[in-house]
Computed example of a mutant assay.
Amino acid sequence: MGTENDTGISEFFLLGISEDPELQSLIFGLFLSMYLVTVLGNLLIILATISDSHLHTPMYFLLSNLSFVDICFTSTTVPKMLVNIQTQSQVIGYKSCITQMNFFLLFSVVDIFLLTIMAYDRFVAICHPLHYLVIMKPCTCARLVLVSWIVSSSHALLQSLMVLRLSFCTDLEIPHFFCEHNQVVHGACSDTFLNDMVIYFATVLLAGCPLSGLLFSYSKIVSSIHAISSAQGRYKAFSTCASHLSVVSLFYCTSLGVYLSSAVTQNSRSTATASVMYSVVTSMLNPFIYSLRNKDIKSALRRLCERETMKVSVVLRLKTCP
């Protein structure tokens, strides 16, 4: 570390996942492939839910929002990483770093809220099926999503403003492939006690409360499924929330694993590698989980492909006509 920069630091250095030059091409190809799969897969989910009237329900409205957030979530970090590898540069501007951190916090918290709302949706559908249409009205779902965006935006803005008050040293190196909030804060030269308090409070409030809601919803769901007498009825009830439960387990297990391991080990580079799971891999796998385990999504995607194929064939016939 150098001396404190009184005029304000202008850039940070992202060290990435590995500094080995021989691995850069492999990392570039791997992350580019994962990013393209993430964007295309989630776009297909969004197009399927919009184009098929059978999917205009609260469950698929929330799923399309989750797919949109996953695209934004991944787009916040991966493109910059790919550019840095391609240009062989580790530099990210101070303003760009704060902006990236702000959007990463925004989309990660929205992701958590959407998963919680989707768990509540499944809880109402299984435990209170007769009142489902009354409780989960379209306007109610829209309000819940809007509140999620407002709370997440406020949290991201607060955390970003808290970072702006810090003083940084010259040549600040971040052992990560993006401007991870904790890494940026702990790289400051000034006192970070207030920032740490805000981080801990926000973590308990914005991660602990949704996790409690998820556990409550699924405990009630499990109790209701267990009370069903027939095996076929239990299977049908469980299949309605199996995809969402898989996504929740993947997201929470990977994110909690990263932060628990970071508390035990001081190896920041290994933490950066592990964070790929919840920041990139989870968003990539979501479309596969929902499409492979959901007959409605598979049917909608099949009908969408058939319609597009018919349109292409009609256009080709018109072009060949004299």
Rank of each mutant, 00 (worst) to 15 (best):
V83D: 09
A272Y: 03
G213H: 04
E19N: 12
L172K: 09
F251I: 02
T7F: 07
I225G: 10
A237D: 01
N42H: 00
S64K: 15
F12V: 00
L304G: 00
H128M: 13
K319F: 14
I85N: 01
M101E: 08
N42A: 01
L14D: 02
N5E: 06
V280G: 02
C72A: 10
T140L: 08
D296A: 11
V314A: 11
V134R: 15
S243P: 03
T76F: 14
S249D: 07
Y120P: 01
Y120A: 07
L114R: 03
A202E: 05
L205G: 03
L260V: 12
I112E: 03
I71N: 11
S262F: 12
V204C: 06
K220A: 13
T3M: 08
S10M: 11
L316A: 13
L14A: 09
L250P: 04
T254D: 09
N182Y: 07
C141M: 10
V276I: 15
I45C: 00
T271D: 06
D70K: 05
V264G: 01
M284T: 15
G208Y: 03
K95L: 15
L301D: 02
P79V: 02
Q88L: 12
S313H: 12
I150A: 04
A231L: 15
F288W: 10
F288E: 02
H56S: 15
T273Q: 14
A274C: 04
Q232D: 14
Y259I: 14
A300E: 00
L318Q: 13
A48I: 00
N65I: 08
D196G: 00
T203G: 14
R317P: 02
I27Y: 14
K137Y: 03
T282S: 12
S224E: 14
S89M: 00
S291D: 06
N182M: 10
M162V: 03
S229F: 14
I225A: 12
C139A: 11
M136K: 08
S291R: 07
K220G: 04
S299N: 10
A242R: 09
F73M: 09
I50C: 06
L211C: 05
M34Q: 11
V264C: 11
P129E: 00
I45D: 00
